[in-house]
Design a protein around this nucleic acid. Structure first.
Lengths: 211, 211
DNA sequence: TGTCATGGCTAATGGTCAGTAGCCAAGATC
DNA sequence: GATCTTGGCTACTGACCATTAGCCATGACA
């Protein structure tokens, strides 16, 4: 990863690998590298030099593509919450049965946390690193997301389908299980995403007393 | 919290509040302040000046009591895992029934994460901030802790008391639920620690299919 | 009363880092 | 061919920070 000052000095200004790479791809590459590094090292410990090195350019050159380091984090975190909410909406659309709605909601929740584990992991760990108003935006979406699960559980309890002493504890435990997935799941490990989604769906139904 | 340089200059070297405070108390105060600040701002964002200010002294003066900032973090994190393991041992001691062992293990897990939410919160978020060999020590204890739950669940399944498709997913989901508690629980909120412990105990038994 | 240990303090050190300034090559466009 | 835009680069700035060096007041103790 390191290079001598001499090598750096002699490198041509426009490396060949940049040819044929449109601006959008470069931006996406930066975003991806930042995400990976934020997940591995944490936001504060990741330097613009690190992110630049991961895409083959110098730290200051990043500012031709992004406005700030904080902006990279905010984009990742807000995007993550929006996607989770959109996935949830899609999961329950056209379904009436409350039990089936919960199963699909949980499966979508687990799928996202397994498939986008870095986003979810960073999204949960770096909330405190976000400055206002971005932090408030993320927290508002998190609250919205939790409310969807809790109200679903309350509805199931009202209908007599679910049996829970406290809907909020049920919703928290179900959501926190999923958040945990983003910290231990590895592609190619013991379980596939589908297996995980299905089993956690079962677990959620057991939690609400409707196995 | 801020003060003008003039005020700082004129302050006497030995503030009156330090009188009658033994060394051990000062050390404990520093540890406590560091824990709170690490939880609120993150380890990297907390400065020695912050910690000093929280106990009424200057940053450099802290070094009369602690060896380094990293040492403060390591002490917190290793202590947290040791306590969790000790609590678990105490919870299952003298109990043979696997169902009762799981209930008590989960209740101890939840109690710790509610009563010591800052320790648990920092302990989970700052693993990446730990340098070796402390990080390895913490991870080894985490692995040990998880194994206790998983083997308990496997034993329950062997005995025909529990019904789980995968013990590892059951153990992860139970532990992750508890970890979540440390991020949302507030003393004096909707639930007491006892209520929480009992309800999560129930939830865990539902998860393993032995309600 | 004199000496010493303790635990404050300020100043300095050595390092890091986000972001800016300004230069320049190459492709695109006129 | 001339000019403009794009996206690299190096050098620099201003700020921050963990830790060390060295000073000194206070209280304990001889």
């Amino acid at each position: 990863m390191t290079e001598s000052p001499r090598e750096a000095y002699e490198r041509p200004h426009r490396p060949p690998r940049a040819e044929g790479t449109p601006a959008a791809d470069r931006r996406a590459g930066i975003r991806e590298a930042a995400l990976r590094l934020f997940a591995e090292q944490g936001y504060r410990s990741t330097t613009m030099t690190d992110i630049g090195a991961a895409v083959g350019i110098r730290g200051p050159s990043l500012y031709k593509h992004v406005t700030s380091k904080h902006d990279l984090l905010a984009e990742i975190m807000i995007g993550t919450m929006e996607q989770l909410i959109a996935d949830n909406s899609a999961a329950v659309a056209g379904v009436d049965d409350v039990r089936e709605q919960l199963r699909r909601s949980v499966e979508a929740h687990i799928r996202y946390h397994a498939r986008h584990r870095l986003e979810a992991f960073v999204g949960n760990r770096e909330i405190g690193s976000l400055e206002q108003p971005d932090q408030a935006r993320v927290l508002a979406r998190r609250s919205d997301y939790e409310t969807r699960f809790r109200e679903l559980i309350e509805r199931g309890a009202d209908e007599g389908v679910f049996r829970v002493p406290a809907a909020r504890i049920a919703s928290y435990s179900i959501l926190d299980m999923g958040i945990g997935v983003s910290s231990w799941f590895r592609e190619g490990g013991e379980f596939t995403v589908d297996q995980l989604a299905y089993q956690y769906g079962d677990i959620a139904l057991r939690i609400v007393g409707a196995p």
